[in-house]
């Protein structure tokens, strides 16, 4: 298996030489992963918050689809968050988070354009970062920052203390 693209087995596993091999991606990965674990857990343990969050976008979805989305979104957040924290498939988890953030940004922009007064159930009952404000610029900026954090992980790799590094090094030794 040639999983290293010919590169040396370095801790960051990515764009080294830009001071991104170690601390920065690691901290970003752990913080972003932790936030998504929290978001997913809060939604899964308070299913009606999750349901209300999805429904609040008022996208004209049927009840069964709302029910499925209210379960799928928290699981996607929980899985991607856990994988980020572990540093396993970290780039893949970051890609999924970027995709989710992109979808949420479009949804929030749609809510703003339609003038809907919608409260964010992003972290369940917790009001992180944007307080009790209706969905608006604060949520757009927050999601954009998280998408940018995901992009950093995709480009720079998971940093240190990541399972991906261990697997890559094992693969290198096996080669």
């Amino acid at each position: 298996m040639s999983g290293t693209n010919g590169k040396a087995c370095v801790p960051g596993g990515g764009a080294c030489g830009l001071s991104l091999c170690g601390g920065v991606p690691t901290v970003v990965r752990l913080v972003l992963g932790g936030l998504f674990v929290l978001a997913g857990y809060m939604k899964l343990t308070n299913g009606d918050f999750s349901y209300a969050s999805v429904k609040a976008f008022d996208l004209g979805l049927s009840e069964p689809l709302l029910q499925v989305l209210a379960r799928v979104v928290p699981w996607a957040e929980l899985l991607s968050g856990l994988l980020l924290v572990l540093g396993l498939w970290a780039r893949g988890a970051a890609v999924l988070i970027m995709a989710m953030m992109g979808a949420f940004i479009v949804g929030i922009a749609s809510v703003m354009l339609r003038g809907l007064d919608v409260k964010c159930g992003c972290f369940g009952a917790l009001k992180l970062f944007c307080g009790d404000e209706p969905m608006g610029w604060c949520h757009l900026i927050r999601n954009s920052v998280m998408a940018a954090a995901g992009l950093l992980i995709v480009l720079a790799g998971p940093g240190i203390m990541a399972v991906d590094n261990r697997l890559r090094c094992c693969a290198t030794k096996a080669d």
Partner: peptide, 20 residues
């Protein structure tokens, strides 16, 4: 990374749908 992300997404879709 894109393939890994898609795999995680499909896994979440399956688990979430079953859960629902």
């Amino acid at each position: 990374a894109i393939l890994q992300g898609a795999t995680i997404g499909v896994l979440a879709l399956v688990v979430g749908t079953l859960h629902a």
